[in-house]
Amino acid sequence: MNLETTLGETNSTVWIIILGMTLVTYIPRMLPLVALDAEKIPPVLARMLRNIPYAALGALIFPGILGIHDQLWYGLVGGIVAVGVAYTGAHLIVVVLSSVVVLSALALLL
């Protein structure tokens, strides 16, 4: 299979795509930091912005965590392990490794 023709993209086309992706990724990350003056933001909006991390974490976790395997319960088990270990106050790396070890072991059994 000739990949160059399969892709239908030349070397420079891929670089143009990468350049475009770079700009549309960087600009949204950068604009608020240089354009917004945190001291001039009204208190109500500032409070809402400080609430964003918790909401964003919820949306980043769910329902994505269920999609890591065909079986929904697989991700759910990993999530429950993470919640349990995190609740004990363990270090973040311990939380991550515990879930990974439990799910790797489960994957061997599946």
Binding site: L60, I61, I65, G78, V81, V96, S99, L103
Partner: peptide, 10 residues
């Protein structure tokens, strides 16, 4: 595959 989700939870 659970790693980043576990991190978010942690």
């Amino acid at each position: 595959s659970i790693a980043l989700y576990a991190m978010f939870i942690g």
